[in-house]
Design a protein around this nucleic acid. Structure first.
Length: 610
RNA sequence: GCGUCUGUAGCUCAAUUGGACAGAGCGUCAGCCUCCGGAGCUGAAGGUUGUGGGUUCGAUCCCCGCCAGACGCACCA
């Protein structure tokens, strides 16, 4: 039997009923009903803290409200007792038997119990990773890739049909620069060896020449024009660059365990742009300004127009010509450049339109760094205004903080630049290998390398996912590659240790049935562990709804910590009482199931041994 | 100048989004029994949550003003 909901969710529903019954004239009381897990051990298992907030509107003391909720009512069957505490909190104590039963389900069914299927029948699009063709992926790309990948898995677990889309940068004026450079000074041996770094070198050098030499720049521009007009030779070169780049991206994705359903780069949308923008112009939603075709948010939004007018006025008073000149840029979105070309606004609007038409998604999630916040605010607002995205489609920009060097300064491309993603993964893997060899001297080389890869990659992914996406990350090799404490390997270790323990249990006590044994929660350590296990579903739901994998990472770390404390203090194999022994084994199994599933949602593998 | 994001223990980060005493890891210090895997466990020290106000029964969280840093602000994406 699967429970569709958690203790908190069941209590929330119960509270809503109780509040509706107790205060029929105040439906807002029932609407705000909410039970959450208690923060501290002494405050029960779940609590309701809404009575204080209602005191004003109901004109009653908070404790009276809390008492009215409980007064004469039958508690849900899983609740042992409920009491009013403190300023007006209601604390609920869950029955041991109910807790044991739900914790047991987590061991039995692979930890799917309690994950609410809020996405059933709905489609979500997740736009993530999005590297640029002809450039190496560096540590700046890891967040979008890893966080986006986790969001995809979280959505799937919640029942959504998910379409991951890799919106690669495969179009733009830089290709003329590369083509020109390729023709003049490409080093074919270097291309043969490792194409992308060579493409990067070609771009940098050609770009430097273009800045110094107008004739070179003009040549580059002409190559771009030829490419965009469909010249077969340039087209073929461009395809070649894309194919070489995608091959190197795929090597990284393979190692990271990321698989993105579709890859529609910017070029994919090019054929439809001209007609789209023409329609936009004819409909009057876009107009010409300084030679460009623009959509102006102030045309649709009186409040925006007023705010802008005031800003201009204030800038004028101060004689600040620069600010005045910049003001338009906040509201205007250029959809066709003065020279007739298109830019990323154009492409992004087309992308929005296509996604809505093709998938009718209930969510579109775009994962990029936070410098693009203004752009996506504008894009979302305009998409709504001109009818590209209906209200039924939720638009979410997951904006993550940029990665800085150890001093908190942005990585400068001049001074060596960001570490390459491949180097990071190699380093992670080799550091892990040293430890694996030390701990497992007898392990064959191939197996050790494979294990070290799982551990190293797990460490890298976890270190990113353990933080709120919004946090600006200070990059440090030691913290990214940490194998102890709050780290991926700590979780993997906890899992491997349980698997080993259970194997020994099965070998030592073949007659005992740990799968069907009732779970006893007599010891506080056992009880806390069981309570944590059953909170898995709610955690997945919260992490998914908020697009914050770190909520799940926090949870898993706390679970592993509680397990370690339990393991240290209470014997399992060496417990003399068979029923308690079986109960503890089953509890271990439940922890292992949840750890494995949770790590999988974060895209981290859980090795059986390490 | 305007806007966005960030500021929490020595360092790196959390805090169930307004709840009870702000928690972890690293580092430091003190411990872990011939006992299930020590990548582990237990404990200690470490805080006026940048700052000054406001709202609230209650603020790390919401509002306003400052300070500091990063990033944006018309044809690059």
């Amino acid at each position: 039997m699967q429970h569709a909901s958690s203790f908190s969710a069941d209590l929330t529903a119960w509270l809503a009923e109780r509040l509706a019954a107790a205060f029929p004239d105040h439906p807002e009381a029932a609407a705000a009903a909410r039970a959450v897990p208690s923060a501290k051990a002494g405050f029960g298992d779940c609590q309701y803290a809404g009575a204080m907030a209602l005191a004003r509107t109901l004109r009653l003391p908070p404790r009276k409200i809390a008492e009215a909720v409980l007064d004469g009512a039958a508690l849900p069957d899983f609740v042992e007792k409920a009491e009013v505490a403190g300023a007006g909190f209601v604390n609920f104590f869950v029955k041991d038997a109910a807790l044991a039963s739900r914790a047991g389900e987590c061991a039995a069914d692979g930890a799917t119990a309690g994950i609410p299927q809020i996405g059933a029948g709905k489609t979500a699009i997740v736009d993530y990773s999005s590297p640029n063709v002809a450039k190496s992926m560096h540590i700046g790309h890891i967040r979008s890739t890893v966080i986006g990948g986790a969001i995809v898995e979280l959505f799937r677990a919640l029942g959504y049909t998910v379409v991951g889309d890799n919106h690669i940068g495969d179009w733009g004026t830089q290709f003329g620069v590369i083509i020109k450079g390729w023709r003049e000074f490409a080093d074919m041996e270097a291309v043969e060896r490792d194409p992308v770094p060579e493409l990067e070198r070609i771009y940098k050098e050609s770009y430097a020449r273009a800045k110094a030499d107008p004739a070179w720049m003009e040549a580059c521009r002409l190559e771009t024009v030829k490419l965009q007009q469909g010249d077969p030779e340039n087209r073929a070169l461009w395809q070649k660059f894309i194919s070489m780049s995608r091959h190197t991206f795929d090597e990284i994705y393979d190692r990271l365990g990321i698989s993105i359903e579709t890859t529609r780069g910017e070029s994919w949308y090019q054929p439809q742009l001209a007609a789209r923008e023409e329609r936009l112009e004819k409909s009057g939603l876009a107009h010409e300004s300084r030679g460009a075709l623009v959509v102006d948010l102030r045309d649709f939004d009186p409040a925006a127009a007023e705010q802008s007018r005031k800003a201009v006025e204030s800038a004028r008073e101060k004689g600040d010509a620069e600010s005045e000149a910049r003001e338009d840029g906040k509201w205007i979105c250029i959809v066709r450049k003065e020279d007739g070309g298109f830019n990323y606004n154009t492409t992004d609007l087309a992308t929005m339109e296509t996604r809505v038409k093709e998938y009718a998604p209930s969510k579109i999630v775009i994962v990029t760094d936070d410098r693009q916040i203004p752009h996506f605010q504008q894009l979302f607002a305009i998409s709504r205004r001109i009818g590209l995205a209906p209200d039924s489609t939720e638009l979410v920009h997951v904006a993550f903080g940029t990665i800085t060097d150890e001093n908190g300064h942005p990585f400068s491309t001049r001074k060596g630049g960001m570490p390459k993603l491949k180097e990071l993964l190699d380093e992670a893997s080799s550091r892990a290998l040293a430890i694996v060899r030390e701990k497992n001297p007898d392990m064959p080389g191939e197996e050790a390398r494979a294990l070290a890869e799982k551990i190293g990659i797990g460490a890298v992914k976890y270190s990113d996912m353990a933080m709120d996406p919004a946090t600006t990350i200070k990059f440090s090799w030691d913290s990214v590659l940490s194998l102890q404490g709050n780290s991926g390997p700590y979780l993997q270790y906890a899992y491997a240790r349980i698997r080993s323990l259970l194997a020994k249990y099965d070998a030592t006590y073949p007659g005992e049935d740990r799968h069907g044994a009732p779970i006893a929660t007599a010891d506080p350590l056992e009880r806390a562990l069981a309570m944590r296990i059953v909170a898995f579903g709610d955690t997945v739901a919260a992490a998914g709804a908020k697009c914050r994998p770190n909520l799940l990472a926090d949870y898993l770390f706390a679970l592993a910590q509680q397990y370690s404390a339990f393991y240290q203090a209470l014997p399992v194999l060496k417990c003399d009482e068979p029923s308690i022994r079986a109960s503890r084994a089953r509890l271990c199994d439940a922890v292992a199931s949840v750890l494995k599933r949770g790590l999988a949602l974060l895209g981290i593998q859980a090795p059986e041994r390490m």
